[in-house]
Design a protein around this nucleic acid. Structure first.
Lengths: 200, 200
DNA sequence: CACGAAGTGGGACGACCGACCCACTTCATA
DNA sequence: TATGAAGTGGGTCGGTCGTCCCACTTCGTG
C-alpha cells in the first residue's frame, strides 16, 4: 500500500521472489505468489518488471555473485594451519550452508535446470558455472599462495573438480540427509585435491 | 484410435511421457502433451492412470533401474586391461551417454528436484540415489575382484564419490558443453579413486 | 443374438497462469 | 494552487492446467 519508487519496489519484489523460490520451489514461483509474499497488488509487479521471465533472469544473474563465492572463498581462510585443514574446512563450511538452508541450493538447481531448457537462458547457466569455477580457482590459488605450495595440475581443472564435487555433494545430501556420509565424502574430496599439491 | 488393453495403453503413455520429458522437460510434461505425443484422446489418460502424479511416480521408479546401472556397470568390463582403464572407461562411457542424449539426464535431474519438493515423493528421490550408490558400489567391487586388488576405503563411500562426480560431471557438461574439460575431469576423478586402491 | 463389460472420445468444470487495461490516488514541480 | 508525471489496484483477457462426466462404440461371453 505505501508509495515507493520503482527501484525500491523492484528490490522488494526481488527479495520476495527469492523467499518464495527457496521455500516453495521454482514451480510455485508465480507472479501471484510473488506479489502475495511482498503484499502487493498484482499490477504492481508489471509496473516494476516487464515480464515474469525478466525477474527470473535477474535472480539467476544476481544470486550467483553473492552465493557460492561467499560460501567457499570467504570461509577458506579461517584458522586453518595446513592446506588440508583449509580445503576440508571450506568444503565443510559449504555443507553447513546447504544444511542450514536446503531450499536455497535446491532453488539454484531448479533455476539452472530451467535456464538450460530455454534457449534464451542457456547462456545464463553457462555464465553461472563459469563464475562458480572462477571462484573455486581463486580459492585454490589462495590456498597455494598462503601455504607456499603449488598445484601440479592447472587450478582451472581442479576448480571444475571442486564445483562438480560440491554439486554432487549437495545432491547426495539433499536426497539422503546423511551427515556422516557427506562428511566422509568431503574427506575423500579433500584427499583427491591434496594429491595434486606439492611443495614449491 | 485402435482398441487396446489398459496395460498396453499404460505402456504407450509411459513411453510417450518419457519422450516428452527428455525432449521438452518436466515443465512441459502436461497430461495433454503426453496424450498428444501418444496420439490419444485426453480421456484415455485417466482411463490408464488415476492421476498425473501417478505417472510421474512410475517414471521415477522405473527409469532408475535401467538407467545408470546399465550406463555404468554394463560398460565397465569391456576390454580394460588395468583398473585405471576400467574406471576411466566406465566414466567416459557415462559421459558419452550424456552427450548422446542430454535431455535424458536433464530430465532425471528435473524429476529429482521435483520429487524433493513434494513430501509424498521425497522418499522416491532417496530410493533413486540409494540405487545409484548400490550400482556404483557393485561396479567398484567388480573391478576389485577382476583385477585382484582391494579398496582401502569402504566401497559404499567410494560409490558416493562416484555418483557425486557423475552428477557434477553431468551438470558441468550440460552447462558448458566442454568435452575436453569433461575429459580432464574424468581423469582427475579416476586418479582420486585409484588412490584408494591397493594390491591384495 | 443379447448383454454387460471394456474401452473411447468430445466436451466441460473450476482453478490458476502471465499479461494487461484503465480509472484512481498521490506527489513533485511550476 | 493547477498540472502532469509517477505510482496503485481492481478487474479481466485468453490460455493452459488436471480432472471428470457421459454418451458412444467395440468386444468377449452367455
Amino acid at each position: 500500500m505505501p508509495r515507493m519508487s520503482v527501484t525500491e519496489r523492484r528490490e522488494l519484489l526481488f527479495a520476495a521472489a527469492v523467499r518464495v523460490l527457496e521455500r516453495d520451489g521454482l514451480a510455485a514461483l508465480s507472479t501471484r505468489a510473488i506479489v502475495a509474499e511482498a503484499e502487493m497488488s498484482l499490477a504492481s509487479f508489471h509496473y516494476a518488471y516487464e515480464t515474469h521471465e525478466q525477474l527470473l533472469v535477474e535472480i539467476i544473474a544476481a544470486t550467483i555473485d553473492g552465493e557460492l563465492s561467499a560460501g567457499l572463498a570467504g570461509l577458506g581462510d579461517a584458522a586453518a594451519r595446513t592446506p588440508r585443514e583449509a580445503i576440508h574446512g571450506a568444503l565443510t563450511s559449504y555443507l553447513e550452508l546447504v544444511r542450514a538452508d536446503p531450499g536455497r541450493e535446491q532453488g539454484m538447481f531448479e533455476l539452472t535446470q530451467h535456464a538450460l531448457r530455454r534457449p534464451t537462458m542457456t547462456a545464463l547457466a553457462a555464465d553461472q558455472y563459469a563464475k562458480y569455477h572462477a571462484a573455486a580457482a581463486e580459492l585454490l590459488d589462495h590456498v597455494a599462495k598462503r601455504f607456499e605450495v603449488t598445484w601440479s595440475v592447472p587450478t582451472a581443472d581442479l576448480a571444475r573438480l571442486v564445483i562438480a564435487m560440491t554439486d554432487g555433494l549437495t545432491l547426495a545430501w539433499l536426497t539422503s540427509r546423511d551427515d556422516e556420509a557427506a562428511a566422509r565424502l568431503i574427506t575423500l574430496t579433500t584427499d583427491a585435491l591434496l594429491a595434486h599439491l606439492e611443495d614449491s
